[in-house]
Structures are given as C-alpha cells and as structure tokens.
C-alpha cells in the first residue's frame, strides 16, 4: 500500500514552516503504538487464584493470542507486560519489584483482580500488600474476584487503547522515551515488617517522635474530614497533571532540562504518594466514572495535546525571534 504523505502529515497541530519535519513524530507515534500494542508479551507469572483465570484466558476458548499476546515469556527480560494476577504478599512483593526492574522498557503493568488492585478480600491480613500500585505504577486495573476471562480481555483491550493514545513526544505519557536511564523501582526490605525504602526517613522520624514523647509508633492517623477529601478530589482529578507543568517547560528553551525537571517532579510525586503525606487514595467515591476508561481520558488527552502545542508554538516563536 502506498503511503499517503499528505494523509500522514495531516494533524491538528499548527505546524510552523521550519518545524515541518517534526510532523513525522506524530505519525511515528501511531506506528510505534500500533507495533507495541499488537506485540505485547506478557510475563508468564501467576500469583494466586486470578492466575488460573489468566491461564484460562490464554487457552483456546478465550485465547489472547488474537491480540498478539500469545508469547508468554517466563523471563522478565523478554516481556512487555506484567499481569499481576493475584494477591501480592509482603514476602512476594520483593521479587515482583525486582522482576519489574528487569523488564525492558516500554513496560506495562496490569493489576488483575481485586487483590492486585487494592488488596482484595485478604486486604486486612498482616502479610498482604494493599494493591501493587503501592510499589509499582499500574496502567490498567481489572476489578473482579476473579475477573472472568472476558473481563481480563476487556482490561487488555483497555491497555491497548491506552497505548494507542500515547505519544512518544510526550515524556509524561511514556517516561521511557524521556531523558537518561529511568530509575528502577526501589526494592522493599523485609525487616520487622516490610519497609519501603522511600519511607525510610518517615519511619525514622516517627520512631524518634514515638521515643521522645512516649507515643505509639503505629498510631492511627486522623483523617481530614472525609467530606473535605471528597470535595478536594474532583479538583485533583480534573487537574491534568502533565499540563500543569507545561508553561514552565515551554519557557525553558532546553527541552532536556524541562524533561529532567518533570522527571524529578514525577519522582517526588510518587514518593509523596508513597509517603502518604497526602493521602494516596482520596475517597473520591462520588466521582462518577461510567464508561470505558479510554473514553474517559479523552479530555485529559486533549488538554495534554494543547499543552504540547503551546510548548511547540513558544519554541517556534523563540527561534523566529
């Protein structure tokens, strides 16, 4: 089939004359995404009951090889997708994080089932991690206990849609095209209880505090009133995080510096979430979110695109001036 250059370069971006050759980037994204989403190799890696449904999904009746996922690799070094299929225990999260760090980028994580998403029925247990997203970034959550094979397939399709919407020009979207090596996820330590290295300082502070005022180390936190949190939530959720960083970035003429700053911000953010100085999970229960996930994020994606455009325009102005 002949490649229609006119078609390919047709984008919504107003392209300044001297940036015409950048246009290829958007098209490249498409090709990249098409390739990536249709050759997702999951890791052959099962944790608990959900893994059995994952095997059922892989077998002939539901057969996820129709989506280019038939090659389940037993080694992390050859896989793109980690399906966290089951309860994550504290003892197991250490190897899981190590496995994740060994996966080559681009890599995705799908949390399958209630357990991997948020702890599941065993959440209250002393050896259970309340969701793999406490340690790793998760792309798609598939609720259910266990999700039926069709529910898992739906989640995999959602992941493909997500990849489709990604742009390789946007480092917030796909961090692995950012600058430099990406940092490995910190591996937790099995001490008296599991210790997240990102929280070391916090634990130390708490321990000192407990020692000095004779308090208890594990005192329960008093929440800000649930209602306040809920009222905050829409604002937080609606605020497109990537776009927020955009103005500053557009002013800096060094793209690299901006990307590094964003990366640092991202790291800080994730640390903040881990340290739970801000509640990682806002009970934004009132947020309605019907609809398929990829439909929902349309607005955010749009905003991101606008930000990118603004950045581009600013840069173009500068070069002209």
């Amino acid at each position: 089939m002949e490649l229609n250059l006119q078609e390919l370069s047709k984008t919504q971006y107003p392209i300044p004359a001297d940036l015409q050759n950048n246009v290829a980037i958007t098209s490249l994204s498409k090709i990249y995404n098409w390739g990536r989403r249709n050759s997702m190799w999951p890791m052959l890696f099962g944790l608990a009951c959900c893994a059995i449904e994952m095997i059922a999904t892989a077998s002939s009746r539901f057969d996820f090889s129709r989506f280019g996922m038939e090659v389940m690799r037993a080694t992390p070094r050859q896989s793109d997708l980690m399906i966290v299929s089951g309860t994550v225990t504290k003892k197991m999260v250490v190897p899981i994080v190590r496995l994740y760090n060994q996966m080559p980028e681009p890599k995705y994580v799908l949390a399958m089932g209630a357990c991997a998403s948020g702890g599941g029925p065993f959440k209250e247990g002393y050896n259970v991690v309340s969701g793999i997203d406490k340690y790793l970034p998760v792309d798609v959550y598939v609720p259910g206990c266990p999700p039926t094979p069709q529910a898992l397939l739906f989640g995999l399709i959602a992941l493909q849609k997500k990849i489709d919407g990604q742009s390789i020009a946007d480092y917030d979207d796909v961090p692995w095209y950012g600058v430099g090596l990406s940092d490995p996820a910190p591996v937790p330590i099995l001490g008296p209880d599991i210790i997240d290295p990102r929280q070391m300082d916090m634990i130390r502070r708490q321990a000192e505090k407990a020692a000095s005022d004779g308090g208890v180390l594990n005192a329960a936190r008093s929440l800000p009133s649930a209602a306040v949190a809920v009222l905050d939530a829409p604002a937080k959720a609606a605020k497109p995080a990537p776009a927020a960083a955009a103005p500053a970035a557009s002013e800096a003429d060094d793209k690299r510096a901006a990307a590094l700053a964003r990366k640092a911000a991202r790291a800080a953010k994730s640390e903040g979430a881990a340290a739970s100085t801000t509640p990682a999970a806002v009970p934004a229960a009132s947020l309605p979110s019907g609809g398929k996930p990829w439909e929902e994020s349309e607005a955010i994606r749009e905003q991101r695109k606008q930000a990118a455009l603004a950045r581009k325009a600013a840069r173009a102005n500068k070069t002209e001036g």
């Binding site: 406490k134 634990i203 708490q206 180390l217 594990n218 881990a274």
Partner: peptide, 19 residues
Amino acid sequence: YRAEERNIFGKNVKYPADI
C-alpha cells in the same frame, strides 16, 4: 475510607516501637 488512609505510613505496615 480506605484502610491505608488511616495508617500513618499509608500502607499495611506497622513497626515495633524500638525499630
């Protein structure tokens, strides 16, 4: 609320006082 919101470390952890 989610259980982790009530935990000072935001996770399902607790440490002995003499850690």
